[in-house]
Design a protein around this nucleic acid. Structure first.
Length: 500
RNA sequence: GGGUCGUUAGCUCAGUCGGUAGAGCAGCGGGCUUUUAACCCGUUGGUCCUGGGUUCGAGCCCCAGACGGCCCA
């Protein structure tokens, strides 16, 4: 322990108190058992009349962290917080004993974890309170809590020391309760529909399933580099080939890209696959899923998000070409013309690469001009094949695929398509991606022979989709920063030199 | 990567024209047996993010850097 030199006065005082507590027989006992929670006591007795409650002499045994203290000479009030909420406790010297009361006054602090056994009462102001018969210090807190009224505001500290944020900011706790509920509801949704929950590898010998830069790691015994997965897609499709015709996975993906209010290098998706279905079935399913999530969590299908009111009662569906045409005022034939699109892209300050074809140009213009304007839930369909190397081509136009993405509040929330199950065409698409990679495109896909081999055994016609869980959580908790919905967001190490 | 704003006591924040740093809460000492952001009296506490520079003098001005927020790419 080398912190003695630089510890603050507060910590010094508390360490002395801790030493005194140790002398008295221990400051970290583990024998106390809570019998009642704050919320439960409020629910059962919050409405009771003062006299009736005292006449009933209801025993209560609570435990939690001391959040507030109002100390008088011979009696004190404490506000105790447990995971369910807060409950006030009342300590009278004459009831807990002079020795204990003195110990409480001298050695206990805000932030300590304590247990209180006593009887329920109501104060003159009508607040339900545990009148203590016995009190126990259960864990000494050596560090001062953030300010009792303003809480912890500093965003950097809230992210770096999330436990402090959770300790003092109820809104922050609520965000993560909603997130947990969201995930539980999604599990139930897929389980009820016969999808099998599976876990596929996080470490891939060949990164695949999305166009994104991967993290690289190394397996010592095998002597090979492995990639943290950018998507589980190719493994989930192998499972469909194996006969698990409905599968889903809720877990982390990793992408080696910048940090932003919308991007954390590790993020959570739910990805699901269903044989004998196409992308339209998945759009219907997505509407059903989001609708039911909103019903359960937001209590209805209209959601307040920032200044917007998002209406999930109806989802728009438009093709990418239509959306680009509307946003740019171009005619369908202009949108279908690579030269016109290239000119449009340059006009938007997009660094157009000479090898980009029509599809890539359309996608780039879409991302630059349309994406952010899609506030109400909107499916954009018919993505170009050039930017969709795993998706099935549209029967009507081979330049397009039966793919969609869902946008809400200007953010991509879901991406799904009818799967490409022709092994020869998949091989061809991989070759095109590999060619891009050779040109230096760090996000292009690798050629995955093992996956092509799997396809050669025959994959039933299938549709698959991924939904960004963090982004859903942001929508449902009205947060504009992914860091607010990730418990421990990635941060630059404090005070480090910048890596080159 | 660029722009911009921020970083001051444990926390939340002030800090005038460049003149030697403050408040509230927390802490410490005292008082108070129904308080509730308890209250009353007294009081401790500072690497003003870091490193340079300008100046008689820098929390404040200039330069570089770190970390964070926001905007853009």
């Amino acid at each position: 322990m080398s912190e003695v030199d630089n510890e603050s006065d507060v910590v010094g005082h508390r360490r002395r108190k801790l030493a005194a507590l140790r002398d008295l027989g221990g400051a970290y006992p583990n024998a106390f058992r809570r019998e009642d929670t704050a919320a439960d006591l409020h629910a059962r007795h919050g409405d009771a009349a003062k006299d009736a409650l005292e006449a009933a002499s209801v025993r209560a045994v609570v435990a939690g962290r001391v959040m507030l203290r109002r100390v008088m000479g011979k009696a004190s009030f404490l506000t105790l917080e447990d995971p369910s909420g807060r409950i006030q406790c009342y300590l009278r010297r004459d009831e807990v004993g002079a020795e204990t009361y003195q110990e409480f006054k001298d050695l206990w602090d805000i932030g300590d974890i304590i247990g209180v056994e006593g009887t329920l009462m109501k104060t003159n102001k009508g607040e339900l309170t545990v009148q203590a018969g016995a009190v126990h210090l259960l864990a000494k807190s050596l560090k001062p809590l953030p300010e009792k009224y303003h809480g912890l505001v500093d965003q950097e500290t809230r992210y770096r020391q999330r436990y402090l944020d959770l300790m003092v900011n109820e809104e922050s706790r609520e965000v993560f309760r909603v997130r947990a509920r969201l995930i539980a509801l999604m599990r139930r949704f897929f389980d009820e529909r016969g999808y099998l929950e599976v876990e596929t590898p996080m470490m891939h010998p060949i990164p695949g399933g999305a166009t994104a830069r991967p993290f690289v790691t190394h397996h010592n015994t095998l002597g090979v580099d492995l990639y943290l997965r950018v998507a589980p897609e190719l493994y989930l499709k192998r499972l469909v080939i194996g006969g698990f015709e409905r599968v889903y996975e809720i877990n982390r993906c990793f992408r080696n890209e910048g940090l932003s209010p919308r991007h954390n290098p590790e993020f959570t998706t739910v990805e699901f696959y269903q044989a004998f279905a196409d992308y339209r079935d998945l759009m219907d399913l997505t509407e059903e899923l989001l609708g039911s999530l909103l019903d359960e969590i937001a209590g209805g299908r209209v959601l307040r998000f920032g200044d917007d009111e998002l209406d999930f009662r109806q989802f728009a569906r438009r093709t990418m070409s239509e959306a680009v045409g509307d946003a740019t005022g171009k005619t369908p034939s202009e949108v279908a013309d690579p030269e016109a699109l290239a000119a449009l892209a340059r006009g938007l300050n997009i660094a157009v690469e000479p090898h980009w074809q029509w599809g890539r140009l359309l996608m780039e213009v879409f991302e630059a001009r349309v994406e952010e304007s899609l506030v109400q839930p909107t499916f954009i369909t018919q993505y170009p094949a050039e930017v969709s190397p795993l998706a099935r081509r549209s029967a009507a136009d081979p330049r397009l695929t039966d793919r969609f993405e869902l946008f809400v509040a200007g953010r991509e929330v879901a991406n799904g398509f009818s799967e490409l199950n022709d092994p020869d065409e998949q091989a061809e698409r991989f070759r095109a991606q590999a060619a891009l990679k050779n040109r230096g495109d760090l996000e292009a896909m690798h050629y995955d022979q093992d996956f092509v081999t799997a396809l050669e055994y025959g994959m039933p016609p299938t549709a698959g989709e991924g939904i960004g869980v963090d982004r859903l959580a942001m929508l449902l908790t009205n947060r504009t920063t992914i860091r607010d919905v990730v418990l421990f967001p990635q941060m630059r190490p404090a005070g480090s030199e910048e890596a080159t």
